[in-house]
Amino acid sequence: MSFWDARFLWGEPMAASVLAAALLGYLGFFVVLRRMAFMSASLSQVSGLGVAVAFWVGSLMNVEPHAPTPWLLSPGTFAFAFAGLGAMAMAVTPRSRRVSPESLVALLYLGASAGVMVVLASPRIAQEAHEVGDLLFGNAVVVRREDLVELAIAAAVTLGLHALFFKEFLFASFDADTANVFGVPVKRMELLLYFSLALCIAVATRAIGALPVFAFLVLPAGAALLFSERLHVVLTLSVAIAVVCAALGYYLSWTLSLPTGPVMVSLTVVTWAFAALKRFFDKRK
C-alpha cells in the first residue's frame, strides 16, 4: 500500500503533528527570545505528572485507563491543570539572587520527573505503566481523535489570545520596565503568555510526545532568528520550518520505518545547523 493509499491511517496523526508544530513554532518565538527553552521542557514534564496523577486518581475511582472518563478526571484536564500551575509558579515567583529562574525550572523538572516515576510505580496502575508511558508523552504515530480536537481548541484559544495581545506580549518581553511605565500590565500579560504556553505544551505533549514538543518550541524559532532580522519573516519562517519538519518527518518515518518523533526532531536539528552555518558564512563574506 502506497503512502497516499494509507492516508486513512496517517491522516489524523499527520494533521495533529502539523497543527502542534505550527502552534509550537509560533510560540517558540517567545520561548527562544525570553530564554525559556528549559521552561518548556519542564512544563512538558509537569504536564506528564498531571497525566500520571490522573491515572492514579482514576484507579482510586475504578476508572479504566483507556475507557472514556468524565472531563474532570480526564488526563487532559490534569495535564493542563498541572502545567498551568507550573507556569503560574514560574510567572509569579519574584526573581531574586537566592532563587533564580533556572533553579525554579530545574526544581519543577526534577520534581515532576521523579513524581511521574513514583506515581507509575504505584501497584494500582503498575500493570498499565508501559501503556501509560505512551499516553504520558505521546506518540505521533497514533493520535486519538480527542487529541486532535484538544489541539484544535488549544490552537484557537492561543491564536485568539495572541491576536489580541501580541503587541503587549512583545513589548513586555522586549523591555518589561518601560512597558510597565507605558501602562502595559506586564505581570498579567506574562501570566497570559505562560497560560497559552502551558495549554499548548500540555495538549501537544500528549498528542506528539515530549521530545518533539521541546524541539518544535526551540529549534524552528532559533533557526528563523538566524535566517532573518525581520519580525514578520522570523514568525512566518519559524512556523513554516516547524510545519515542514513535522510533515516531512512523518512521511520519512512512514516510508523508511523509522520512529516518528525522533525523525521530526532530527529534521529540526538539521535545519537549525543549516541556519547556523549559513549565518556563519554570510558573516564572513
Binding site: L33, L170, S173, F174, D175, D177, S228, R230, L231, V234
Partner: peptide, 8 residues
C-alpha cells in the same frame, strides 16, 4: 536594559 536580540 532592552533585549537587543529581538528582530525589531
Amino acid at each position: 536594559r532592552p533585549d537587543f536580540a529581538y528582530p525589531l
